[in-house]
Computed example of a mutant assay.
Amino acid sequence: MKIGAFAELTGVSAYTLRYYEKKGLLFVKRDQNGCRNYLAEDREWGQFLCKLKATGMLLRDIKRYAQLRYNGAGTIAERLELLLKH
C-alpha cells in the first residue's frame, strides 16, 4: 500500500510517517522502484507509535522500543520493562 493510502488508513499524516521512518521508528519495505510499500502489519505499529508518543514517551525511548520490536519476540521482557519504567 502506498504512503497516502496508509496515512488515511492509520490517521497519521504522510509527513509524520516519513519522519518516523527517518528517525528509525518505522521500517518500511520498498518496491523495485524505491516507493514505500506499507504492509498490513505496519498499520498496528504505526498506530501504536502514536499512542507511545501520546503518553509523553521521549523519542529516544520510542526509538529503543522500535529497535527491540524489530528484533523480535525475544525482546518482549525488555519492551515491557521500558513501558513500565515510562
Rank of each mutant, 00 (worst) to 15 (best):
G24F: 08
C50L: 03
K85F: 02
Y15T: 05
R64Y: 10
A40H: 11
E44S: 07
A54Q: 14
K53F: 08
N71E: 15
L59F: 11
G34T: 04
A73T: 10
C35W: 13
G24C: 08
F27I: 11
L84A: 10
V28H: 03
K23G: 01
V28R: 01
R64C: 10
K51Y: 08
K63D: 04
K53L: 11
L83C: 12
E81D: 15
E41Q: 10
M1D: 08
D31I: 05
E21S: 07
L9M: 13
K53W: 04
T55G: 03
C50N: 04
E44K: 06
C50A: 08
A5S: 07
Y19G: 00
F48V: 05
S13F: 06
Q47C: 12
A14C: 04
E8K: 14
R79P: 04
K23W: 01
L17Y: 00
G46V: 14
R36G: 07
Y20A: 03
E81T: 13
R18A: 05
Q32F: 04
M57N: 10
Q47G: 00
D42S: 05
Y20F: 13
G24Y: 08
L52Q: 12
L17A: 01
L17T: 04
L26N: 02
Y65N: 13
E78Y: 09
I62M: 15
G34W: 09
G34S: 09
L82Y: 07
A73R: 13
Q47T: 11
C35N: 13
T16Q: 15
F48M: 14
Y70C: 00
G72V: 10
K85Q: 12
A7S: 07
R60K: 14
A77P: 04
Y70T: 04
G24P: 01
M1K: 04
L58Q: 14
Y15V: 10
L80S: 09
A7G: 02
Q67G: 12
E21Y: 06
D31E: 05
L83M: 13
G74D: 15
G72T: 07
Q47K: 15
D42G: 09
N71V: 02
M1S: 13
R36C: 03
Y15E: 12
L26H: 02
T75Q: 15
Y20W: 14
L52V: 07
Q47V: 14
Y70W: 12
V12I: 14
S13Y: 05
A73M: 13
Y20R: 05
V12S: 00
R64H: 12
Y15S: 09
W45L: 02
L59Q: 14
H86A: 11
I3R: 06
Y15M: 03
A66V: 08
E81C: 12
V28D: 01
G46H: 08
Y20I: 06
K53T: 10
D42C: 06
L59P: 03
K53A: 10
L84Y: 04
G74F: 03
